[in-house]
């Protein structure tokens, strides 16, 4: 899931200081699961803003709502009738959701309330770890299910660098060496052959915005 972290309150307050009517829009999918921007977090932030602005003698009228997914037009549609009553929108969705919201209401200032952090896993309630950089060319089959792009500080594809240190990475003792883990796992599985082949340099042109159309969902071409 996409993991986000709420922005510092001071930063959010500062972005909204000139607006008198603000709608706080949460997102009920990834950011709700990672406890950053779901219905509950919308409640907390809205209450905080209300109190802080009153204390600053600059009261603000706040609305709050949470849509199922801000990255989906189908759900954003529900906001159409509400948005015109507000001066600005505050989005607690991930970066994709925030942009989709801003795209739908180009006349309204839209502000982010969270910092979108990474694609990660849930280790415990409220504890998330990064696992994927969405590089668009997955090598997990070759590396025993451990991602060298995410887990190796240098993103190496052909074994560890000289900084590998008894299973740790040179950047920090607590950071495991991805290639040590890959070697260990493949060795246990008897699959060391799979990393013997040299992987050619990657074509990082995927650094530009990417589009995915799943098979069977391509729209018929227009004349």
């Amino acid at each position: 899931m996409i993991v986000a972290k709420r922005k510092p309150f001071e930063e959010i307050k500062n972005m909204l200081k000139d607006y008198k009517k603000v709608l706080n829009v949460g997102c009920g999918t990834c950011v709700a699961v990672c406890l950053a921007g779901g219905e509950k977090e919308v409640d907390v932030l809205t209450a905080e803003l209300d109190m802080a602005r009153k204390l600053d003698n600059n009261p603000v009228e706040l609305g709050k709502t949470t849509v199922e997914r801000q990255c989906d037009r189908e759900y954003l549609e529900a906001l159409d009738s509400m948005v015109e009553d507000y001066d600005a929108l505050l989005s607690m969705a991930c970066g994709a959701g925030i942009q989709f919201l801003a795209e739908r209401y180009p006349d309204k200032p839209v502000f982010p309330a969270v910092d979108t952090s990474f694609i990660g896993v849930n280790q415990d309630v409220g504890w998330y770890e990064e696992r994927c950089r969405s590089c668009s060319s997955c090598v997990l089959g070759m590396t025993g299910g451990i991602c060298p792009v995410t887990m190796c500080a240098k993103g190496l594809y052909n074994g560890p660098c000289g900084g590998t240190n008894n299973g740790s990475c040179e950047i920090h003792q607590d950071q495991p060496c991805a290639w040590y883990m890959i070697y260990e796992r493949l060795s246990k599985q008897g699959r060391l052959d799979s990393i013997m082949e040299v992987v050619p340099p990657q074509d990082w042109q995927n650094q530009t915005p990417r589009t995915v159309i799943q098979p069977g969902y391509k729209k018929p071409e227009k004349d």
């Binding site: 309150f9 001071e10 907390v44 905080e48 109190m51 802080a52 204390l55 600053d56």
Partner: peptide, 8 residues
């Protein structure tokens, strides 16, 4: 923590 953030 939240109260400190809002200035209380």
């Amino acid at each position: 923590m939240l109260l400190e953030e809002v200035g209380l």
